[in-house]
Design a protein around this nucleic acid. Structure first.
Length: 536
RNA sequence: GGCCCCAUAGCUCAAUGGAUAGAGCACCUGCCUUCUAAGCAGGUAAUCCAGGUUCGAUUCCUGGUGGGGCUACCA
């Protein structure tokens, strides 16, 4: 059983009570009662359905109350809410489900989904900087959420290992190797100095492109290590050069032509979005008049490749600096995929960096940035990931480095992790305190006190949090939830003793309850890629 | 100029169009001889402005104001 099952039975009841189609009753959903209402579940449906049912909300509420199973002890509240309570037995059963059912978040609509989730995809021209942490947190947490919902997810990193920037990278490395300054518009960061120091002697006879290849290979190693330290493991690192080796851009162009989505004008080849589709405002160049492909064409080819690999959904996570690129990519990929909703671009706003009183512009070329590695080394992956995950993708974020380093203890992540540590500690101490941690209790005798009930109910809401995350393409609901759950636990902990040998029934029940709490904390932290420590 | 995002407590953030707007940090008052005080209990404190839609707007629409970003036959 789960909230979804409860909702389902309530919808059945509503559908038959009001003689409406079952689908219409789908609008009925369970929500958390406001703090001043003493109930477990609230239904606002009578208020919102009043218009379509052409009845007064209060009247609907009364009829709904009469229709729902008696075990829910329904109550009506003005202007038309119905509030429910779960019985102790029901609540106990739900806790058992949390502990025993590893697939409890699986949803049928995700069972056949095979999602490709591409994120970070930073150019291999320098170390990952902290802004990549935001995309990495977002992408990886989403991947974990979709997996929890039952989807198959492949995490992918696209590497631009060709083109001018990579050429410039090679020239910059060559210059460092020869003890010179990199070109004006090259890469001036210190990381190329240490890279140059590691070059073999025979590099003096290398052509420029050898330097590029060497630099890219080394940068990829760094990226991989940085991402691993951030607890992100990509299933695939897709090289742009793979596309060209397979002549994918040319094939993509042929496919576009075949579908009448490309045309020639002024010596260039254009993507005909404006004439054929309404998603973009003007036509874009695919092949320049000089004969070279634009990145637009290469990116179309790349996404065509993703489609050919059999993914049912393609999700790209991009920084807001690329938002202008979304309409044309959606126009192109949506059309090639046959359905626009198979391709989704999640945009997150950029991260600005603040150091002291100064807001620093980050630029790899000037070498002025804070690397992700530096940040993870100083404040830890847990605090970083929780911090980034706490905000919706659309918040504009100014990252205060000094604050992050100095006040990492103020990060709510520790407040949440502390719950896990405290519970673990209780379990570890049980035997010593004269309580058998594996002792059974009589389910029929269990009566939840208010703190126990609040805790148990909170655990049930996690499934809603997951669907919120999927709906909004953001993990931030999880951090909010975790902090709220942690507060309930700490409050419970302060009020009630668990390990009381004089009350073995109560102790056994509370250990059972806390086992469920600890599992939910660990699961939810896991979805964020944050550890759940046994002690702190 | 055109387009996108944002504006909630001193600071950083929450809130499928629903009930008395919820947290963390900071500040103030209490609480460790008792399973971890990285904690608990309590207090101060907020929806940028003007209209509109609605039974009901922090939420949706229009127009302001103030911030950030994008606007290449660049990669």
């Amino acid at each position: 059983m789960s909230l979804r099952d409860i909702e389902s039975s309530l919808r059945e009841a509503a559908a038959s009570a009001f003689h409406i189609p079952r689908e219409q009753a789908d609008a009925l959903s369970a929500s958390v009662p406001p703090p001043h209402v003493d109930a477990d579940i609230s239904l606002a449906w009578p208020v919102s359905a009043a218009r379509s049912l052409r009845k007064a909300p209060l009247k609907i509420a009364e009829e709904l109350k009469a229709a729902v199973p008696a075990e829910f002890q329904a109550e009506v509240a003005a202007p038309g809410f119905v509030n429910l309570r779960l019985s102790d037995a029901r609540l106990l059963g739900e806790l058992k489900g949390i502990l025993d059912d590893p697939a409890r978040f699986h949803r049928p609509e995700y069972a056949a989904e095979h999602i490709n989730l591409e994120f970070v995809s930073a150019n291999p021209t320098g170390p990952l900087h902290l802004a990549s942490g935001r995309g990495a947190t977002l992408g990886d947490s989403l991947a974990r959420v979709f997996r929890a919902l039952g989807a198959e997810v492949s995490e992918e990193f696209y590497v631009n290992d060709r083109g001018r920037q990579v050429e410039m990278l090679g020239l910059s490395l060559k210059a460092r190797f020869e003890g010179k300054e990199p070109p004006e518009d090259g890469y001036h960061g210190d990381y190329l100095k240490s890279l140059a120091a590691g070059l073999p002697k025979e590099a003096s006879s290398w052509a420029a492109c050898r330097f590029s290849e060497y630099a890219v290979t080394e940068m990829l190693k760094l990226h991989r290590a940085d991402m691993a330290a951030f607890r992100v493991e990509f299933d695939r690192w897709f090289l742009e050069s793979e596309l060209h080796a397979a002549a994918a851009p040319a094939k993509a162009l042929a496919e576009l032509r075949r579908r009448g989505m490309a045309y020639d004008k002024e010596g260039a080849v254009w993507f005909g979005a404006a004439s054929e589709l309404e998603s973009d405002d003007k036509d874009r160049v695919l092949v320049k008049s000089g004969g070279a492909n634009t990145y637009f064409l290469n990116d179309i080819a790349y996404h065509l490749d993703k489609l050919s690999r059999g993914f049912t959904r393609i999700i790209d996570v991009w920084g807001a600096d690329h938002h202008g690129y979304v309409p044309r990519m959606e126009a192109a990929v949506g059309a090639l995929a046959g359905a626009g909703d198979r391709f989704k671009v999640v945009i997150h706003q950029q991260v600005a960096l603040k150091r002291g009183e100064e807001t620093v512009k980050m630029s790899k070329r000037s070498g002025e940035f804070i690397s992700l590695k530096e940040l993870v080394d100083e404040v830890g992956a847990d605090a970083c990931r929780f911090f980034f995950a706490s905000r919706g993708p659309n918040t504009h974020l100014t990252f205060d480095v000094d604050l992050a380093k100095k006040q990492s203890n103020e990060n709510p992540v520790f407040y949440v992790q502390y719950v896990h540590a405290r519970i673990s500690s209780i379990f570890a101490n049980a035997a010593e305190k004269g309580v058998d941690p594996a002792a059974a209790f009589d389910p029929a005798a269990v009566k939840f006190n208010p703190e126990e009930r609040a805790l148990a109910m909170k655990l049930l809401w996690l499934e809603k949090v997951l669907s919120d995350c999927a709906r909004d393409y953001s993990p931030h609901h999880l951090t909010t939830y975790l902090v709220e759950l942690a507060a309930l636990f700490h409050s419970f902990y302060d009020k009630h003793k668990v390990l009381d040998p004089a009350a073995p029934q109560v102790a056994a029940f509370r250990i059972f309850l806390l086992r469920a709490v600890r599992k939910v904390i660990a699961d939810a932290l896991g979805l964020l890629g944050v550890s759940a420590p046994e002690r702190m």
